[in-house]
Design a protein around this nucleic acid. Structure first.
Lengths: 144, 144
DNA sequence: TTAATAAAAGATAAAAAACTCTTTTATTGA
DNA sequence: TCAATAAAAGAGTTTTTTATCTTTTATTAA
């Protein structure tokens, strides 16, 4: 469904949002541990998200990653678009470039419905909401 | 959503089923052209599907690929499972191995619904049905 | 103003996915 | 039986994704 890069990104964003709410900035090492992701890899991913404005960061001592108020309202769809692009939401299920209503691929209609339900889910799911769940221990981010 | 390999596989299976209904076996070259796939690559994929019994083939002159009656009832879900495995249907949306009802990841519940709708769609979509659409020119398989 | 800290940036490596080419095997029909 | 045909099998190559390592830049606080 999502690339690994995107999975790491979502996990990291949720974790950072939670820490921000608690009033802390958080470093790469802690993020990597908490989300069970390769440290240098998640660093690259966050660099990218930072350039795109989905997360904020500060260098130096007491530095780290955090999210601005606006960012905690960002949806999973925003993250997925930033990392994987929008092919999941708009592309043809069979990878055909010229698939459309007029010249549909065989699974066009069925696939459209599924895509819409995925999009709705991701669009309505904000990072801030999830970080609440995390805090209440109603959800988890670690693999083991 | 699906790997490219899987997309090619689905396109090829639909095309072969249609040709079988018309009473013909069909060669790799024709399949590659009709589904806009790399010839040697789709050959490998069909070898695999053939070993798994989803498609049949005969070597030599007049040989080619075809589907047994039973195979034309095979669903998209069968093909996806054969090629991509079942991680799309069972895996965690965030790639967590230990995600479950008791210890859910933050998107667990939402994701479950989406996965179920994907599975239902793929399970209820048979190759035979699509080949009918193809024949009636109600659907298409080529990229250009 | 300097030592420590932490992210940014750059370069490289490993693994997986996508794709290609060549040789072998099975089948046909002349 | 033999030449032609077509898939199977084997052995690559290329590209993309995932991951790691090293150096640089920015910031802080002592």
């Amino acid at each position: 469904m999502f690339s690994k890069t995107c999975e790491y990104a979502i996990r990291a964003m949720i974790f950072i949002a939670q820490k921000t709410k608690a009033g802390n900035r958080v470093g790469i090492k802690e993020i990597a541990k908490a989300t069970d992701a390769p440290e240098h890899f998640i660093a690259k991913i966050l660099q990218d998200l930072s350039r795109k404005g989905l997360v904020q960061s500060l260098k130096g001592p007491t530095g780290g990653f955090y999210v601005e108020d606006a960012s905690s309202m960002c949806s999973l769809a925003d993250i997925v678009k930033a990392i994987d692009g929008d092919k999941l939401f708009t592309g043809c299920g069979l990878g055909l470039k010229n698939c459309n209503e007029l010249k549909p691929c065989p699974i066009h209609i069925q696939f459209k419905k599924v895509r819409e339900s995925i999009y709705n889910m991701l669009e309505n799911a904000t990072i801030g909401e999830f970080s609440k769940q995390l805090e209440k221990n109603l959800a988890f981010l670690k693999r083991k």
